[in-house]
Simulated scan of single mutants.
Amino acid sequence: MFFAGATFLSFPTFLNVGNQTLGFSGTAGLSSSATAVKFSASDLTAAVSQGPIATLTAILNIFQYYFMCYGAFWIYVSIMRQIGSMKGRNNTSTSVNLCMIVGGFLVMNADTVAPALVKQLHLLSS
C-alpha cells in the first residue's frame, strides 16, 4: 500500500523512472504548455518513399501523444487493480497487474518499440 500511495503522489515521476529503467527516453509531466503535433503531406510522402518501416515510424510519430496517454492510463488502471486486490475487492493476481504495467510502458513507447519489433521479427522489408 505504501508503494501504491507513493506512486500516486508523483505519478509523472513514477512514469519517468519506469521509462528510464526500461531504457526508453520518453518523459511524462503535468504542465500547462502543450506541444502541438505538426505534420505535412510531404513528410508522409517522403516516409512512404523510404519504405514500410519509415512509414510506420512516421504514422506512430503522429499518434505519439495518444500512445503515451493510453499507456499511462493502463499503468494507472493496473495499480488501482492491485490496490483493489490488496483490499480484497477483486481477485486479480499481482503477476497480471505487473504484466499490465510493463505493457503500459511498452504502449507508451510504441513509436520506439513497434519499428524495432517489426525489424527484429522481419515482418516488413526495409
Rank of each mutant, 00 (worst) to 15 (best):
F63R: 03
M80T: 13
M80I: 13
R81I: 07
G71P: 04
Y66D: 11
Q64T: 10
I59K: 00
R81P: 03
A47V: 11
W74G: 02
Y66I: 09
T55D: 04
W74L: 08
R81K: 15
M80L: 14
G51Y: 08
G71F: 02
A47Y: 03
V48K: 12
T57R: 08
M68N: 04
G51K: 02
I83F: 13
W74H: 14
L56E: 09
Y76S: 12
G84C: 12
F73C: 04
Q82G: 01
Y76A: 13
Q50D: 12
F73V: 07
I62Q: 06
T55E: 05
T55P: 01
I75N: 00
Q82C: 09
A47M: 10
S78V: 05
Y65L: 12
I53S: 05
P52H: 05
I59H: 00
V48W: 05
L56A: 15
T55H: 01
S78H: 07
F73S: 09
Y66F: 10
R81G: 02
M86W: 11
Q82I: 03
S85H: 12
S78F: 04
T55N: 03
M86K: 10
M86E: 08
M80F: 09
I59T: 13
I79E: 00
S49P: 06
R81A: 10
F67Y: 13
G84M: 12
M68F: 06
I53N: 03
I59M: 14
Y70Q: 08
A72W: 01
L56G: 00
Y65C: 04
G84F: 09
G84E: 13
I79C: 02
Q50V: 07
Q64W: 06
C69W: 05
V77E: 05
L60M: 11
